[in-house]
């Protein structure tokens, strides 16, 4: 596990992913800085005390929403950045190196998954922390509930990685892994409006099909909503989108392990 962790970190550095994630964070901080300047100008003119300012709370809420969107984008970036990991690992000549070691195939796949989650999870958390500190300093208006965004984002990353790993093992192709992930994303986005479709179609069979698909597929849109709610200091009453999506991820990685175990190289 430590070996795979070090390898994943070395690969991340070698592929200059730090520049990409760092660059995006810097751009986000710059946007926040510009936004804060406009806000400060407005306030200076109005002469209202910032601590008791209801306007400040609105701005703070916007900042939280901005951070939540930023984290979703970071999860997307991390998913795309890792889409090639498994196809690369499975290339002829490289997979032989891994499989000739006294590690089971399932152990190897899970080791790679966990090390990727740790490395990229820490990276997106670090980027998010930098932005949230910048937002706190520049804008304020929100509490430490904002930290709730991070575990939810890492959980979302886990789910996407499970999908990417399955596609990587099944197709051994980076473009196909990316396309599969996009396909799942499109389907889950479409399914997020399941209640509306049910009303439109008004058919019991259609209801069953739509509900089944909705419950089977991951609910990333729902998870994003949850993370925003938590960051805003609200209460999440239904955790179903998170746990059912995690179950979907577990099923995907189980399928990936099963496929990997039966594949000849």
């Amino acid at each position: 596990m430590r070996g795979l962790l070090k390898d994943t970190l070395a690969e991340l550095i070698d592929r200059k992913m730090l520049y990409l994630f760092g660059g995006v964070t810097v751009v986000a901080v710059l946007i926040a800085t510009v936004g804060a300047q406009i806000d400060v100008g407005f306030h200076t003119g109005s002469g209202v005390d910032s601590e008791a300012d209801p306007f400040k709370a609105v701005v703070g809420s916007a900042a939280v929403r901005g951070l939540s969107t930023f984290m979703s984008f970071m999860v997307f970036l991390a998913t795309m950045a890792t889409a090639g990991l498994i196809p690369q690992l499975l290339t002829k000549g490289r997979v032989d190196f891994y499989l000739s070691k006294p590690v089971s195939r399932t152990g190897l796949l899970l080791g790679k998954l966990f090390s990727t989650i740790i490395v990229y999870g820490l990276l997106i958390t670090l980027c998010g922390s930098v932005l949230s500190l910048a937002l706190k300093w520049l804008i304020g208006g929100f509490g430490w509930e904002i930290l709730g965004v991070f575990p939810i984002s890492v959980a979302a990353l886990c789910i996407w990685l499970c999908i990417v790993f399955l596609a990587g093992v099944a197709f051994k192709s980076t473009p196909l892994a990316i396309m599969t992930t996009f396909l799942v994303w499109i389907v889950q986005t479409v399914l997020s409006g399941h209640e509306a479709y049910k009303q439109l179609l008004d058919s019991k069979t259609a209801d069953i099909i739509i509900d089944s698909l909705y419950y089977i597929f991951p609910k990333m849109t729902g998870i994003n909503d949850m993370s925003r709610e938590l960051a805003l200091g609200g209460t999440v009453f239904d955790w179903m989108p998170l746990w059912s999506s995690l179950l979907f991820g577990i099923a995907m990685i189980w399928l990936a392990a099963l496929t990997f175990r039966k594949t000849d190289f």
């Binding site: 070090k6 070395a10 002829k92 891994y98």
Partner: peptide
């Protein structure tokens, strides 16, 4: 026709191989 992880140095490859073992 091996293709060892090219982002590693020779020494790192030995360490990685040892870790996997």
């Amino acid at each position: 026709s091996h293709r060892f992880p090219s982002h590693l140095t020779g020494m790192e490859l030995l360490h990685f191989a040892g870790r996997l073992s």
